[in-house]
């Protein structure tokens, strides 16, 4: 077992997710299966191979510093669960 139930609870908390006891059980089991599956990669010999962070060999994809049109503010706010005037409205966060 790579993943304990406590870890599932911890990760769920970080992701602000709430699970029932049954779900916690289920996800612990499933996550362990997934990790065991991915573990198969360790069978590959990677000596002398540089680690990469991306699957494609591409570097330096840049854009020039040019201003483009932004969205119309109404459109920006269109999906907001709540808005007030030109702002998104959220439950108060204390500094």
């Amino acid at each position: 077992m790579k993943i304990t139930r406590a870890e599932v609870e911890y990760v769920a908390h970080l992701a602000r997710l709430e699970f029932s006891e049954d779900e916690k059980e289920k996800f612990t089991f499933q996550l362990n299966n997934i990790l065991a599956y991915v573990d198969m990669l360790n069978q590959v010999d990677t000596t002398d191979i540089e680690p990469v962070s991306h699957a494609i060999a591409l570097n330096n994809a840049f854009r020039e510093d040019v201003v483009e049109d932004s969205l119309n503010p109404e459109l920006s706010l269109a999906n907001a669960p709540e808005a007030r005037g030109p702002f998104f409205r959220v439950p108060k966060v204390i500094e």
Partner: peptide, 16 residues
């Protein structure tokens, strides 16, 4: 992204 970085404009008008 290409949104402007200008300060002090209408809220949420430089978003994409």
């Amino acid at each position: 992204c290409g949104c402007s970085t200008q300060f002090g404009v209408e809220p949420n008008s430089h978003t994409c």
